[in-house]
């Protein structure tokens, strides 16, 4: 029983970070109606930024959030403004070529990082990397716990932004109907740039939070793009609440798979769940709540 609870706890903790990754992709999906296939690669870039901050400037990885997030916001906004939005002006079978563009961007980011940092595996060592505290026999890994807390705060902040501010309302309006938003005086073009920036900043936060408990190499982006994709589908495309649930479900599934089946099969468990959802619950988990 204790092992089960322990597995559940670490699944939920990692799920919080997955949720952050998923929300970023969901935001972009909601507004632009495209799957951002460079999502994991953006996270990888943020991880390298954090790595450099730690290695060469001696900054604590959590403090590096304040550097990685703005950097990725600017990078994401620039990608949307100069690479994705110009594609809208070209007459073709849209929006598929925006998706193809994100694949290309992902490849470029990976190879640029490989060029600078080579393919070596890297990780960072902090004083608290393997610190844990115990609650009734269940161990909580400190960096994971902190990461979960920060992920929670960021998600909360995002919700306040979307629900309470006029810019947030504009983002939601653009996601729900872009034509209507434009005739209501919303600069939808600018909103797409803001949204891609926000999505990138969120995944940057996830990357920074992951670094103390994970390892890093240039090709790490791909698997995380896949995870983000699975989370978005699980949650029901475009639903932020769904993305949170999807992230936690994926985290718990991986964790249970690793404990009870085999460590090497944890990704397979996630994929099986993904397939089951696609077959039996095509609208995603969102369908269960009817929101």
């Amino acid at each position: 029983m204790e092992m089960f609870i322990q597995t559940l706890v670490s699944g939920i903790l990692i799920g919080g970070i997955y949720a952050l990754i998923g929300i970023g992709m969901t935001l972009i999906m909601g507004v632009m109606k495209i799957i951002n296939l460079a999502h994991g690669q953006l996270m990888m870039v943020a991880m390298y930024i954090t790595f450099v901050c730690h290695q060469y400037l001696g900054l604590d990885p959590y403090f590096a959030l304040f550097i990685a997030m703005p950097c990725l916001f600017v990078l994401g906004a620039a990608i949307q403004k100069y690479l994705l939005n110009p594609l809208l002006k070209v007459d073709s079978i849209l929006p598929e070529n925006q998706v193809l563009m994100t694949v290309g961007i992902g490849m470029v980011l990976t190879e640029v990082m490989r060029f600078i940092f080579h393919s070596d595996y890297r990780s960072i060592e902090t004083g608290y990397s393997s610190t844990a505290f115990y609650l009734g026999g269940i161990s909580f890994n400190l960096p994971m716990f902190v990461a979960f807390g920060i992920a929670l705060l960021l998600t909360l902040g995002l919700f306040l932004f979307l629900l309470k501010t006029d810019v947030g309302k504009s983002v939601r309006a653009t996601a729900q109907n872009m034509d209507a938003a434009m005739i209501l005086g919303i600069n939808a073009h600018w909103i797409t740039i803001l949204t891609y920036g926000l999505g990138s900043a969120l995944v940057a936060a996830a990357g920074t939070l992951l670094l103390p408990i994970y390892y890093l190499f240039p090709d790490i982006g791909g698997p995380f793009t896949l995870k983000a994709f699975v989370i978005t589908m699980l949650g029901g495309m475009g639903s932020t609440v769904g993305a949170i649930v999807g992230g936690v479900v994926l985290g718990v599934a991986e964790s249970l798979g690793a404990t009870y089946i085999a460590m090497s099969l944890k990704d397979a468990v996630a994929m099986v769940i993904f397939l089951l959802v696609l077959i039996f619950l095509p609208g995603g988990l969102k369908k269960l709540t009817k929101v």
């Binding site: 309006a173 729900q176 109907n177 034509d179 209507a180 434009m182 600069n187």
Partner: peptide, 24 residues
């Protein structure tokens, strides 16, 4: 001009096929 600027200049419109922001 882009649509949103035309709106700011004072032209409003409705759509024949209504486009409500469904989840608001």
């Amino acid at each position: 001009l882009p649509t949103w600027k035309i709106c700011k200049q004072g032209i409003g419109r409705t759509f024949q096929v209504v486009k409500p922001l469904r989840r608001m």
